[in-house]
Amino acid sequence: MVAFTKLAALSSVIFKSETNMLTYTQEKQSSGASNMKFLRGAVLLIAAVTLSACASPDRFDNDNTTSLGGAGISDGSASDPTSPLYFQQAVGDRVLFSVDQSTLDSTAQAVLDGQAVWLAANSDYNAIIEGHADEQGTREYNLALGARRADAAREYLLSKGVAAARLKVVSYGKERPIEICSQESCYALNRRSVTILSTGLSS
């Protein structure tokens, strides 16, 4: 036989949430046996912000289009040396880096030399230099590492005479791999900086 303790005074605590109204009430024990009636809901206050209890968790149009750099310029023809496509393919729009490094080897420098020449000849174009890392690293560190790589490429182009106002940098860290295997063959291609041509982006 259990004697419930008497639940007299009640201390109440307020719940607040944007979806629900909740209050709770704690029994306090004094003395004497008793029963259910002792739970007295001294409801204090209910601060409630109502939110649409939508059946779907998705309040957005799930528009999956993503714009990835570039300013909507047409790539032109690869045989036209003034075209962005020529820049990408013949000049080379990217350079690669060693693990956890942002130094430019001679191959990378040669590519950037070509970029500098092309940019000098095609002054209508500006560029955003994207820095990337492979997946073998933590997110924030890889953002910082990508920033180093993009900046290394930018500094090199500046040293070759490209105007600072024409070059911006952005780091994607490990967020935008182009190769998806989890091996060095893929990682080597993901550790990169990519010079993306744009028009009218200088500010």
Partner: peptide, 23 residues
């Protein structure tokens, strides 16, 4: 053979039932 702590009561909207269970 005894109760542990005090009885407790929560009130709220039905939509908040999971929160009450978690409490």
């Amino acid at each position: 053979s005894q109760e542990l702590g005090k009885g407790l009561q929560f009130s709220g909207t039905e939509a908040g039932w999971r929160r009450m269970a978690h409490k």
